[in-house]
C-alpha cells in the first residue's frame, strides 16, 4: 500500500501539491489524471525520493519513504520515464540489464544478457534489438525497451510516467495492453500518470483526478463517466469551458 498524507510540494512560489492525500492498495493499478503542470509527475518523483516533499508523509507498506535503507527501498521499484530515459551510451541489452549488472544481484554479463533478451521478448522485441543503441530505435521501440528495463528485476511497484506520449494510437494501444498484462502477470502495484484517456481505461483499476494540488476525485475506472465531478467531466470531454482553466 502506498499512502500519501497531506503532501505539500512547491517550487519557489509555484505551489504544486497542496495537501495531497491518496491511497494506492497493494496489487492495484491507479492512474493519476490531471491537466498539464498540475504536478502529476511530481507525485511519482516524491514517492520514489527524486524530490523531497515540503510537508506531509509518504509511506510504502507503512514505512516512511525517507527512512531506512535507500537501495533496498529503490530495489522494490521500477519506473518507466516519459521519454524512455534510456542510457544512450550503452546498447539496449545493457540498458535493460543495468540493475542486474550493477545492483545487488551483480549477474555475470552472459546471464544478464540472457535475462535482458528474455525481457525484450516479453515486450515484443526480437533479440537482434539487444545490440542496437537507443538512438537507432523508433519511439515505440524505445518505450518497449524502457518497459523491459522497468520490469527487468521484477519490481513490486511500478510507476509509468506518460507511457504513451508521442506514440501513434495503435502503438499506444500496444503499450497499454503490454502494461496491463505485465502488471497483472507480476502482481505489481502500479501508478500511472497520463493525459491519454484510452490509457486510463486500458490500465486503471482506480483513477485519481489531480486538480489544484489535491486529489479532486478518486474512484473505480468504471465510475469515470458518472463521477459527478465537474473537473473530471471537463477533462474527459476535453471541453475548454469548466472549472479547469484553459490557457489560450
Amino acid at each position: 500500500m502506498i499512502e500519501l498524507e497531506q503532501v505539500y510540494k512547491a517550487f519557489g512560489n509555484n505551489r504544486v501539491l497542496r495537501g495531497m492525500t491518496l491511497r494506492v492498495p497493494k496489487g492495484t493499478s491507479t492512474v493519476i489524471i490531471g491537466g498539464s503542470g498540475t504536478g502529476k509527475s511530481v507525485v511519482l518523483k516524491c514517492i520514489i525520493g527524486l524530490l523531497a516533499v515540503d510537508h506531509g508523509r509518504i509511506t510504502v507498506d507503512g514505512s516512511d519513504v525517507t527512512v531506512g535503507d535507500r537501495d533496498a527501498f529503490l530495489a522494490r521499484f521500477g519506473m518507466l520515464f516519459q521519454g524512455g530515459a534510456l542510457f544512450d551510451s550503452m546498447p539496449v541489452w545493457q540498458n535493460v540489464a543495468f540493475r542486474l549488472l550493477l545492483g545487488s544481484q551483480k549477474l555475470s554479463q552472459a546471464d544478464a544478457r540472457e535475462v535482458a533478451i528474455e525481457k525484450l521478448r516479453r515486450v515484443g522485441l526480437t533479440p537482434d534489438v539487444a545490440h542496437k543503441f537507443p538512438a537507432e530505435l523508433s519511439g515505440g521501440m524505445q518505450k518497449r525497451v524502457g518497459l523491459a528495463r522497468t520490469i527487468a528485476a521484477d519490481p513490486e511497484i511500478i510507476f509509468f510516467d506518460e507511457p504513451t506520449t508521442g506514440l501513434d494510437p495503435i502503438m499506444a494501444g500496444v503499450i497499454n495492453d503490454l502494461i496491463r498484462e505485465i502488471v497483472v502477470e507480476i502482481g505489481a502495484t502500479a501508478m500511472t500518470i497520463t493525459h491519454d484517456m484510452s490509457s486510463v481505461r486500458a490500465i486503471a483499476d482506480t483513477v485519481a483526478m489531480l486538480h489544484n494540488g489535491v486529489v479532486q476525485w478518486t474512484g473505480p475506472v468504471q465510475d469515470l463517466n458518472n463521477s459527478g465531478d465537474p473537473c473530471v467531466e471537463q477533462f474527459i470531454s476535453g471541453s475548454v469551458d469548466g472549472p479547469i482553466e484553459a490557457i489560450r
Binding site: K45, L50, F77, M79, F87
Partner: peptide
C-alpha cells in the same frame, strides 16, 4: 543532456548513485 532527458533520474531509480557512477 542526461539530466534533461531524465537519465540521471533513471540512474537513481535503478539504485545507482550519480555521484559514484
Amino acid at each position: 543532456t542526461m539530466k534533461v532527458t531524465e537519465q540521471i533520474d533513471a540512474l537513481i531509480t535503478l539504485s545507482t548513485h550519480p555521484f559514484k557512477y
